[in-house]
Every structure is written in structure tokens, then in C-alpha cells.
Design a protein around this nucleic acid. Structure first.
Lengths: 200, 200
DNA sequence: CTCCAATCGCAACTTTTGTAGCATTAAGCT
DNA sequence: AGCTTAATGCTACAAAAGTTGCGATTGGAG
């Protein structure tokens, strides 16, 4: 990707990435401007425009960093508790005063910009795949049918949280998170989320 | 609200509203500018800025119109089929080449702007309340527990569709819609979505 | 050590977006 | 019809966002 991975280019890139995250945490997505990132990073405005193109480009770049980070997949021994833990983690992340605005900015940017949308898509595909591990374990324990679609269970579990946050703009409590997890678990146990159901 | 409801003010307002919807359908939210709306409506730029303030104001105004429109609540006699119909309606709406971009623009605008977010919030609260009718009927038929939280069942049913569209940016098929509806129905039947669960 | 190409900084410029002051129009009232 | 005034149109302006051309710097290869 980078033609000159070490050296000044790398320093510039890191400075801009760091400045982007700090600006996001401080002012949120709506307060993020190329100019402010340039000033904070000590990199010239023109350079930021040339390499990242726009605010959305800055976000897309930051997202690729976020994708690298590993995710703690719970293993409580109970399918329902595992799911609860995952959804709670999501809800708690958005409630966090530092991580919350940054995560929200990713979603916001992706809604407007194709590049950011693709980055976020890849990000979530990876997350779903990782989190589906709790479903695979539940299958092994016989808690849910063998052909349960793991990724889709995760989607159903976390979707209500995102729905409240970014669509209906309702507050999200921990109780809401738990209930969404329980609902997804109940649906999985009922055999509604089966892969075979895709081609009837 | 309007001091001069009939006459020029009303004509200007209608022209701008119509132009906003047309622009949204053609270029989506990212392509919506005050200038273009002004040109298309034949109203001067400064007037639009004075009365609507910004692009978000235009959206918030259009949203209030959308809230007025009634919604066809299905009554098939089967809880599961009613839910399926509702979610299919949502999914189909976004798939529609005209209504889709407009609806998506509302969500996009609300993610960025507080006024639009409040309007969209009110919009969805009204929708949930209306759609909860199918749950009330299911309670009467004895298909789900008496204290089932109707609005929350609706949320769980439609949330995966919005999640795919605006968060993970995955395509949404009718099959996905049906599955989400079935999952919400299964959860409701299992008694996971009960009001009493809110205050343990 | 020297050279070369990629990258960056800088300043000037263009485009887009939003605002202010004032003249003009027309709705509603008598 | 004539009067009053809220609302709009118009021009000019101000601020922000984004671009361009060029010279300066620097990392890496020979």
C-alpha cells in the first residue's frame, strides 16, 4: 500500500490518524473537519486532502485500524449468557464517553460515504464471524439446532441496539440489551435461524 | 404555525417541499443542497435559508409530512403473518427506487442532525404504536403472553432490516425480512418480550 | 555520498456555502 | 379599492471548503 512505509510518510500518517481519533472523541463526527485534523496533527491541510481526500476518507482509514483490534468473545458455558455479554459489550461501548463518539462516527460516516461504508461492512463481517463462535459452541452443547446461522443470530441480537441508537434515536439501557440478546437466543432455540431455511 | 397559511407563503412552502423530495429521490441525501432545492422550486436561495435554515431543516420538514401519512397495518388473522407483512413492507419500501432513497435520506439526516433526529424519533414512536396493534390482536387470540411489549416486538422485527441497510451495509432480501419477523414472533411466543420484565 | 523520485509545505486561487441590508410583492383586513 | 405588514427577491458580501502549481524536503537505492 505505502510506497515508503518507514520514515516521514509513516509519521505523517500516524499523526493524522491519532489526530482524527482525538478530534472524534472530543467533537464527534459533526465537529470533525479536515482543517482541524491538519492543525492538530501538524500536517498541512493540502497533504491531508491529497492523501485522504475528505473527512470520510479519514474515517475509513481509522476504521481499518479498528478492524485489526481483537475482540473478547465470551465463553460462559451458557449460550444465552454469551449472547447477553456480546450485546452488553456493544451497548457499553456506545455508552463510553471516549469510545462511544468514535464508534458512532464510524456508523455516521459510512451512511454518507461509499468508502467508509465498505470499510464498515468488512469490519462487521469480521465481527459477525468472530462472534458466531458462541453459536458454534451452543450447537456443540446441543442448545440450538445444528444448522443454525451463527452470523444471523449475532445480527438479531445486536440489531435492536443499533436500531435504537441510529434509527429511532431512543436511549438504550442495559435492560434493552439483555432483552435483545434473550430474544435472539429464543429465536435460535426455536429453530427460526437455520441455514437450511435459506433455500426452501 | 403559519401566520399566513393561504397564499404565497403556502405556495413557497409546497414548492420547496416538493423540490426537496424530488431532489432526494434523484440524488439521495449526499446530493441534496439548499441551492439545488431553491433552483428547482423557483424560490430564492435566501428564502430557503431563512425558513428552513439548512439541508437538515428541509429534511425535518419533509419528515413531518411523512408522519401524517397513514400506514396499512395488516390483519391476516395470524400473528406471524402480520409481522412478516410489516417487515416486508419496510424492506420493500427501501427497495423501491423512488421511496427508497427518500426514506434512506431521512435516516441519514437524522444521524447527523439533532432536529431531524427528533423528528424521526417522533415518527418511529408513532409507527411502533400503530404497528403494535398486531401484537394486541395476537394477545387477544392467545398467541402470545398478555403482557407482551408490542412496540418492542415491532422493534425486534424490523431492526435487522435497518441494521443491514444502515450499519453493516449488507443487501437485504425478502428472505431476510421474513426471517427477522419469524424470529421476533418466536421471541414473543417464548415470553421474552414482556413488559413486566422491565421492572424486576 | 550522491542522486532521484516520492512526498510534503506553502501560498494563492476557485468554488461552495451561508449571511446582511434593503427594495419589492402580495395576503389579509377594513 | 386602499392600507399595512409579513414574507420574499435581489445584490453584495463573508466565511468555509477544497484545489493547484511549485519549490523544498527526505527516504531509499546505487
Amino acid at each position: 500500500m505505502e510506497q515508503r512505509p518507514g520514515g516521514r510518510s509513516a509519521r505523517v500518517r500516524d499523526a493524522v490518524r491519532q489526530a482524527t481519533l482525538t478530534e472524534l472523541a472530543e467533537h464527534g463526527y459533526s465537529g470533525l473537519t479536515v482543517e482541524n485534523v491538519a492543525i492538530r496533527s501538524g500536517v498541512h491541510k493540502t497533504t491531508v486532502y491529497r492523501r485522504w481526500g475528505s473527512v470520510e476518507g479519514l474515517i475509513a482509514d481509522a476504521l481499518e485500524l479498528a478492524r485489526e483490534e481483537p475482540w473478547p468473545i465470551p465463553d460462559t458455558g451458557s449460550f444465552q449468557d454469551d449472547l447477553r455479554e456480546i450485546v452488553r459489550l456493544v451497548q457499553g461501548g456506545f455508552a463510553d464517553p471516549v469510545a462511544g463518539p468514535i464508534s458512532a462516527a464510524f456508523v455516521t460516516a459510512a451512511v454518507q460515504n461509499g468508502d467508509a461504508a465498505r470499510s464498515l461492512h468488512d469490519f462487521f463481517m469480521a465481527r459477525h464471524e468472530q462472534a458466531a463462535e458462541v453459536v458454534r459452541r451452543a450447537v456443540e452443547r446441543g442448545e440450538v439446532p445444528a444448522d443454525t446461522d451463527g452470523a444471523d443470530v449475532i445480527r438479531m441480537a445486536v440489531a435492536p441496539v443499533y436500531y435504537r441508537l441510529f434509527v429511532t434515536h431512543e436511549p438504550v439501557t442495559e435492560r434493552d440489551a439483555v432483552r435483545a440478546a434473550d430474544a435472539a437466543a429464543a429465536a435460535a432455540r426455536a429453530g427460526v435461524v437455520q441455514c437450511s431455511g435459506r433455500r426452501p
